[in-house]
Amino acid sequence: MIPDLILFFGLALVAVASAIGLLLSRSAVYAALNLILNFTAIAVFYLVLDAPFLALMQVTVYAGAIMVLFLFVIMLLGAEKLSTGPTLPYQRPLSILLAVILLLEAAYALFFRSSPGAPPAPALAGFGSPQAIGETLFSAYLLPFEVVSILLLAAMVGAIVLTKKPRRRG
């Protein structure tokens, strides 16, 4: 129990800290790095929660592919720094106020609306394994899986079309 708590709070600290870092970072590059750290922490949570396949996907797809893409764009645009100066003065206090309210609501829901749960029983063997995911994915979720492939194709085409420079005529 204790090592679990230590692990959880340690990782939670890393995750929250990196999220705050993302929030407060001046530079987009730092923000991206903070986000990678955060994603990695969450990947560890997935392992703890018996989802090893997702944990690996988190690292490869999110922390790897997507964040590389982000960094790539940041480097491409070279505009990681922005002009300062408040343009919407009420935006920040209102946002913080709403965030606090949301947190309070979540705390209310967690502490008063749900019975304090016992830790779940140990998972069955093979739960969350690539094999189990594969079986579920290619049986019950076959159609969404195929649709996702089309979605990715469309996104790829869309990205190319959007970034392509308009062809000049003549």
């Binding site: 993302l22 923000a31 922005l82 913080i96």
Partner: peptide, 22 residues
């Protein structure tokens, strides 16, 4: 609980930051 906290921080990021990438 951790998920809520991270979500709120993400939302704050969306609401407060002006950089489209962030």
């Amino acid at each position: 609980g951790l998920s809520v906290i991270l979500f709120t921080l993400g939302a704050l990021g969306v609401l407060i930051r002006r950089n489209a990438l962030i």
